[in-house]
Design a protein around this nucleic acid. Sequence first.
DNA 1: AATATAAGTCAATAAAACAGACTGATTTCT
DNA 2: AGAAATCAGTCTGTTTTATTGACTTATATT
Lengths: 145, 145
Amino acid sequence: MLKDFLYLKEKNLKDVIELLLRAYVSSFSDSEKNLKRVSLGKSHQRLIILIDNYPGIRVVEILNILRITKQSLNRVLQELIKKDLIIQKQGEKDGREKQIYLSKKGVELSNSIFNSQKIRILNAFKKSSPDEVLYFKNVLKRIIE
Amino acid sequence: MLKDFLYLKEKNLKDVIELLLRAYVSSFSDSEKNLKRVSLGKSHQRLIILIDNYPGIRVVEILNILRITKQSLNRVLQELIKKDLIIQKQGEKDGREKQIYLSKKGVELSNSIFNSQKIRILNAFKKSSPDEVLYFKNVLKRIIE
DNA sequence: AATATAAGTCAATAAAACAGACTGATTTCT
DNA sequence: AGAAATCAGTCTGTTTTATTGACTTATATT
């Protein structure tokens, strides 16, 4: 049946790209005040979220996810280190690696950022069924690969 | 049953915020080459996508969606005008408004950007059921409000 | 021993966004 | 009809974020 394939149509794909943009922009604007309070910006926010979700994450991994240059990442990293928000440990297996963790202070900041951001997601989920949320997450993951 | 509410748990919300970030970053990196070819960047890409999806969109509407200042938007708009990618028309009802449209050249560029971006979404959707895609879109819309 | 990888650094530049103050045209309020 | 609000745009200067290119150091792989 033709109708079954409507979701693969160009218009639907274009809509989704726009929705992704808007969902990202709005979700990552909710915590602006929390960041300004400690003189940080969106680049730090992105980094903190990643380190929080992947404790011990390495620089190369961050570069691949955020698609920025190592020089750009390094600036942001140094600013977080200067503010005692993250800690670096030498890799155990591979001595070249450095694993990045949030400090106690970093965890606190991450939580305050998260508390601002979660409201929007929670409200959306409350209007959704468990299945909808599950499917939503599944598709998001497939977009990332 | 407790299990039914797991999807509202903090860890799940945090995961989703990170997934949104990654889905956005990867989706909007796929068209880098198309933009560089015409000396444009991500700020232009975001704008073009919006104008494509909402022909006749006004400046205030764009400001609300992209959450940037009008000075910042104006710079990007002027660059697109200089390259004959967009057209502005005086608002019919309200003479203060200016409605923004893609030019023929703008539509072509938008299509080339879209063709690069759609691959990722299409691949994800092909691995998903029509229901999953539908639910995905529904939740995305609820996040935006 | 040669090569590749992970991380970091220096310096210059470009891109994107912000802040504040201000103009002009049109519409809405009362 | 006059005051206030709204939409768009402008000027100037600054900050934030990211890029390019070249180069170093340490460790791991082949």
